[in-house]
Design a protein around this nucleic acid. Sequence first.
DNA 1: GAAATCTTGACTATTTTAGTTGGGAAAGTA
DNA 2: TACTTTCCCAACTAAAATAGTCAAGATTTC
Lengths: 161, 161
Amino acid sequence: MKLTTKGRYAVTAMLDLALHYGEGPITLADIAQRQGISLSYLEQLFSRLRRQSLVASVRGPGGGYSLGKEAREIFIGEVISAVDENMDTTKCHGAHNCQNNERCLTHDLWSDLSNQIYSYLNNISLQDLMDRKAVREVADRQEHGDADASLIDQVGTPAGV
Amino acid sequence: MKLTTKGRYAVTAMLDLALHYGEGPITLADIAQRQGISLSYLEQLFSRLRRQSLVASVRGPGGGYSLGKEAREIFIGEVISAVDENMDTTKCHGAHNCQNNERCLTHDLWSDLSNQIYSYLNNISLQDLMDRKAVREVADRQEHGDADASLIDQVGTPAGV
DNA sequence: GAAATCTTGACTATTTTAGTTGGGAAAGTA
DNA sequence: TACTTTCCCAACTAAAATAGTCAAGATTTC
């Protein structure tokens, strides 16, 4: 199982796209700034997302990216798979040759866990996330500037140690 | 979320211990051989397992390791935590400072996923695994030598391509 | 044709993984 | 006592993965 920044960034960026649906193509520069992700790293991720038709692109001024299909038809699991390879937790990646070409003692445990994770992430769509109150609150904050960021800062990071 | 060989090995080794309960202390050398894990790597893992009281040790000839408590009281999640730190999938590891000291757009998604994984792994005990037919079959195979390993080999690995 | 934007591939510093190496300490056995 | 078996521990390391950077190019709009 790999669930790292790569997969998280991809989902975050896709959700950002979904939230700005209707405003025409969104540039990666916008997403990079709003979500605090490196632009060139985003380019790498979107290259993969495009190959999976999860996003569509328009070049030139006024260009950018938009969702490849409707927000309710894009599931988190798809997005992660597109950039992150697999969510499998077995050592043998589903084959049964974990130990001396036979299945290891715990193969089924990891296999079951993988299915669990897989079905969880494949049942949540971008639309589902957009409908969540907490998500809308964060989106609003990102839209209207973080006036109170300094306040939170005092709590978040210890004073100059 | 980190679920790598480290956590898998730890669970496998613990299950091996559980399966051989009643035979006195089990040496790491035995486990290493049965489960195909490097002995010195096992030593590292058991050092952590012992600190968490998941195993008890006896030194000297005839020594080895045994479970620190009953198999039905040891949960997979505990074992993984002991060697693998955390099963959290959030970027901020539970704090809410993922982005500019505030929560990122997808914080709750990863937080929920983490809880899902956590509760799954914390509801399976070593005893539960021992009760599974597939586990007992693999354990039997490991006990009585792999006479038919060559047969499986033909299926497991493609012929010299 | 200049600027904005996507597109691609190669490169890289840092961290993590999955170990190895080498020493030691305790306990049993002769 | 000497010897062996086992656990115990810390430092080291090769290979891989992560999270990027950098440089060049292709399209499109103005």
